[in-house]
Every structure is written in C-alpha cells, then in structure tokens.
Computed example of a mutant assay.
Amino acid sequence: MTDKIRIIGMLAACLLMITGCSSSASYSAGGLKVIMTCGFAEDEVLRIEDLSCSMQELKVYLINMREEYQAGLGEKIWTIGDGDESLSARLKDACLSGVIRVKTMVLLARKNGIELDDREIGAAHSAAEAYYESLTEEDITAMAGVSEDVIYEMFLENALASKLYEYTIRDINPEVSDDEARTITVLQIMRYTTGADGVSLSDSEVDHIRKDMESVKKQIEEGADFESFVADMNEAPEGTISFGKGEVDKALEDAAFNLSTGEVSDVIRTGDGLVLLKCVTTFNREETEANKVRIALQRKSEAFSEEYDAFAGGLACDLNEELWNSVRVEDGSVEELSDFFDVFNTYFGED
C-alpha cells in the first residue's frame, strides 16, 4: 500500500455530534443516519448492516486516541470545556465516528468485491499477536477485557478499509505540476477594516487607512525600507507569509502572483482589510514541494469521499444509547501503551 494512513484517524469528514440525543431519534452525519435504539447484545455498542462494534473494540480505539492526546497535552486536558461541550465528549464522538467509518468502508469493500489475500490475513494475525502480547493485564482490563480475537478482527477491518481506499484512488494522477503547486513568499503590511468588535469601519475611516497605505508605498518607492513599515504598521499576526493558489483572498492572490521578486504591489482591498505586498520570492521550492503533497492528498481524499458518501447515504447505524452513554473517556488508566495504529503500519504500511 502506497499511503500509510490511519483509517480510524480519518474523522473530519464524518465527525458526529450526537451527545444529548433522545432514544429512538435519528440523525444524519456525513450522509449516514445514526439511530438511537435498543435490542442489542450485552456489549454491542453499534450495528451497521451485519457489522457491529463491541465495547471491547470501542475501548481499544478510544484509549489509543486518548493516549495520543495526553502524550502531547497532558492528562488534565479532559477537564477543559469548550462552550457546553468538553474535549472528552468531542474525542468520544470522534472515536465513534471513526469506528463507523471503518465499518462502512468494510461494507463498501464487500460491495466492490475487494478481499484480503493470504499474505494480508497472515499480517493481521501477526499484528494482533504482537499487539496483544504488548498489553498488560491492566491494559486488557481498561479495554473491557479485550481478547486477541477481537484485536485480530480490528486489524482485518482496518486492512480491508485501507485496501478499499487504495482501490478507490487507483486512477488518481498523483503528479502535480510546479505551476499548479507554486508557492510564493511575500512581506505584507496589513491594516484591518473591521474593529475589535467585528464591526466594519466607516467609508471615511477606510479611506483614511488607504491614504496612509498609499503614502507608505510612495515612501518605499523613494527608497524607504519596506521591512521597517512591516514592523511598525502590520496588524496581521505574521509579516512574512507563503501561500499557493486558492489559499488566500482572490484579490491578494492575483496581486501577489503578478509580482516579480522585490516588486511592491499597489494597495489591495481584501475581505479583511487593506494590504501592501513585497515579493520575496516568486517560487519557494520547499513550500511548493510540500504543496504538491497536499494537493495530491486532497485529490485522493475528494475522490474517495465522493464514492464513500454516496454509499454511506444508503445506510443506517443503530447505536446502543444506554451503553454509549456509559462510556467515559477518562476510564481505564494505562501505562506506556503500545500504539495500535503504529502496529498496523508496521505490518501493513510501506516506507
């Protein structure tokens, strides 16, 4: 497989915000209907068609995602609120969204006749054995008593989901030209045309700012240092910015990409304010190469999402409300947990 991807981490496109839902209600998320209902097996959290997710499986994903967050931000992050919703609730919903995505991808793989070969099945066995042997008794308890068989099925599903992704994007051209990905670097002097309260300035106030900016340009043309005005006048967070096509205000993009190295623009009106630019370089090789990677990944993501969304729109997910509501991100402390996704990439990824 050419892309080392974390299927469970592909969450943004289908993030579910379903906390606080009442029983037997239905909700649409990413084209897939989520229904709070009853009639499940004892530890069954959700069901999509003939696929289900147990509490053990959910806990493996949830604890692995939790440990990643804690590694960078510390254990106290779960007490931080954001409006009426905590980070804990958002992570919990993101995990559920990822599980649903994997299950849906497995169903779509079946529809397309995609299967794992003997080598891939053997890799799933080896990955499951390696991961399960790395778990302590405390880890297993935290994961609701997960068994090696459950871990094995999880690796199989992630492998099939990954294979589906590669199959779907097989005809996408990964080549991106220098012109398409070209990234330039400019210095900017930005003056905002909205106040701190978000209210737009009056026409006379904007005209006053424009006259100041035009005066600055005249001084620069007469030999004044552009950089000194950046330090004294720029209201944007950064004085030096790099960007490609389609990443900034169209008026700013058009002006910037028509500049030669060292050239200063006219005063530009954008949605945020008035700007003067000085071109540092018309072609930033390092940023352009990075932009090629971003564009190629975006192409693949869009191609996959188109097929995935069309398929998911015809499915419904039954969620065990009582069991789901009992899940807490903070439950189940672990020490130096092996990363499920790292193990997956060890056995299924390519360098």
Rank of each mutant, 00 (worst) to 15 (best):
Q70Y: 11
G30K: 01
A231I: 05
A224E: 14
M1D: 02
E57K: 04
P174K: 13
V275T: 12
I121A: 08
E166Q: 15
M143W: 03
R191M: 13
W78G: 03
N258H: 14
V280I: 15
I295C: 02
N345I: 09
T346I: 04
P174Y: 14
D232C: 12
D232N: 15
E133D: 14
N325C: 10
L156E: 15
A196Y: 05
E137Y: 03
E166Y: 06
V199W: 03
H208Q: 15
S26N: 03
E350C: 02
V343W: 04
E238C: 06
S86K: 06
E166C: 00
A224P: 11
E75C: 01
G20S: 09
K4M: 05
G244W: 04
A290I: 01
G145T: 12
V206P: 07
A251F: 10
C53N: 02
D272E: 13
V99M: 09
D318W: 04
L276T: 09
L32P: 00
D232G: 14
T288W: 01
I220M: 07
S52D: 12
L32K: 04
L315M: 08
Y152Q: 14
W78S: 08
R294M: 03
I5L: 15
L276A: 11
K92F: 07
Y27V: 13
L164C: 06
V267L: 10
E49M: 06
I114N: 02
L135Y: 11
T2V: 12
K245H: 14
E175A: 10
G31C: 11
Q70I: 15
A127W: 09
A12C: 06
V186A: 07
N234Y: 10
C95F: 01
G271D: 13
N258I: 00
Y347N: 02
D318N: 05
V60C: 13
S54V: 07
G83N: 07
K300L: 06
D149K: 10
Q70N: 10
V146I: 13
I48A: 01
T282Y: 08
E350H: 12
S126F: 14
G198T: 05
A290D: 15
V60S: 02
T141D: 11
L73C: 14
M17S: 14
A181G: 05
A290V: 00
P237W: 12
G20L: 00
S200W: 11
T168S: 07
S86H: 03
G9E: 10
R294A: 13
I295N: 09
T193H: 07
A316F: 05
M1K: 14
A89K: 12
E44G: 08
S86D: 09
G72C: 07
E175G: 00
V45C: 04
C14R: 08
Q188V: 07
D179C: 08
L11E: 00
